[in-house]
Design a protein around this nucleic acid. Structure first.
Lengths: 238, 238
DNA sequence: CGTCCTATTGAGTACGTTCAAACCCAGTGG
DNA sequence: CCACTGGGTTTGAACGTACTCAATAGGACG
């Protein structure tokens, strides 16, 4: 997929601390989190955190992941994508077995949720940060509900590309270049479509000159405003 | 709609305090929340919290509500239902205008999210409670993503009824009686279907003797295990 | 009892799926 | 360096589920 994704030089816990812990955190609090953290690495396709019996809080130190729910019979739904620096809330496996799967070689720090929150009791700004990020996840999930419930195939793909541009896009003279770590199947499983439909919609957007595709994973968005027009959002002035 | 839904005798703030604030909360903290709370009442169809420019935290003191997102062209998606005792996180209107709409006469306490969290700084168990509830909302929203992305119309309705049985069902000799506060249109807008399709699926479930319907809003689930079999967790043919 | 609005039922259509084949890119070995 | 191989992707044709449009039936209100 990606040729030798560079293994980060920085200690994963340093990344976690920089992203989540407040600047002037007490050393003992920091040490407590360090002792709770479990480090894990996974190659593409790997699910290093299976068999969890308790709710987990997982920090993605590097790489990219999908949070997958299996409905039945190979019917999969990708509930969210997460990238380096993101925090994932992973419930103990319940009715639908959720699992976090790496899209690339990725590093994780996982915490037992209850231990984590107990340790955050003192420093309320940590809990606030977790809450803030959880609300962002909730907001994204609600957006996804709109996409899955009320949008056409083309609107779904356009929305997806616009969202990915925000999250992992690299601006490039007016447009935006995406190096998508996920396959067509992943995109389909995220958008509630089939690979064939995703492919057809890519073709249409290509014919409309809104995107260009290079190889399997590189997508260039040449006209983001037009793409967002096709994403089925409510026009602001309506 | 409902004949004079009884106005609760208990003070809405008392309900809020009982649900959210810890038992032995300091009187001044309690007073601070009381001063932040804005009280609102809405009849069925009313949206008392529109035009918010800031993120809100809303406590549903009584009644039942839908959280609606408008995509475009009258395409609506109901993102969540909330009932008495629930807490709703309502973002400032962004790209998709969300609004909280009452299904029945309902009472609300709304807080500015930043003020609320600032007041909860001292009492970390309050923040924890908000976080806990936000994660429940996130978990429900993920379940909804599976439903909207990968389930058939029949599975969607079966899932919906099973979920509602958990949340507002009244057990009744082996089965469960539901007095649904939402219309067929609301159900359709929640499940990403049309009213006609919802109606047809109700007919099928009725013919299968899994549910009985009485009037417009009362549904009796006579065979919950069979209903959950049809909810798409695992299909019959395998 | 009559009116209005919601819900149900029916017929035809459309969008996305399914099944199947061709194509292309990346990795491997000659 | 290039052909070969294999999985991911694209394209094509037929099908099916849910949608649209339209009419009827049923509840809730005056």
């Amino acid at each position: 997929m990606n040729q030798h994704s560079p293994m980060p030089v920085v200690n994963p816990f340093e990344r976690f601390a920089a992203a989540i812990l407040p600047a002037g955190v007490a050393p003992d609090v920091r040490a407590r989190f360090q002792s709770l953290a479990r480090h894990a690495v996974a190659d593409a396709g790997g699910a290093p955190l299976e068999h969890q019996e308790q709710d987990q809080i997982v920090f993605v130190a590097s790489g990219a992941t999908k949070l997958v729910a299996r409905a039945s019979l190979g019917r999969e739904q990708i509930v969210a994508f997460h990238f380096a620096g993101d925090l994932v809330s992973l419930p103990a496996r319940g009715r639908h077995s959720y699992s976090l799967v790496a899209l690339q070689r990725s590093e994780f720090l996982s915490f037992c949720a209850t231990d984590f929150l107990a340790s955050a009791q003192d420093a309320s700004c940590i809990t606030n940060e977790i809450l803030r990020r959880s609300l962002v996840s909730l907001w994204r999930c609600r957006e996804k509900s709109i996409t899955l419930g009320r949008k056409t195939a083309q609107e779904r793909l356009a929305s997806f590309l616009a969202t990915m541009a925000d999250r992992i896009g690299v601006p490039h003279d007016g447009g935006c270049v995406l190096d998508l770590p996920m396959s067509r199947r992943d995109i389909a499983d995220s958008l509630g479509l089939t690979i064939e439909t995703v492919s057809r919609q890519f073709t249409i957007l290509r014919d409309l000159a809104l995107v260009e595709t290079t190889g399997r994973s590189t997508v260039t968005l040449t006209d983001i405003p037009a793409l967002e027009d096709r994403a089925g959002h409510l026009p602001v002035a309506a």
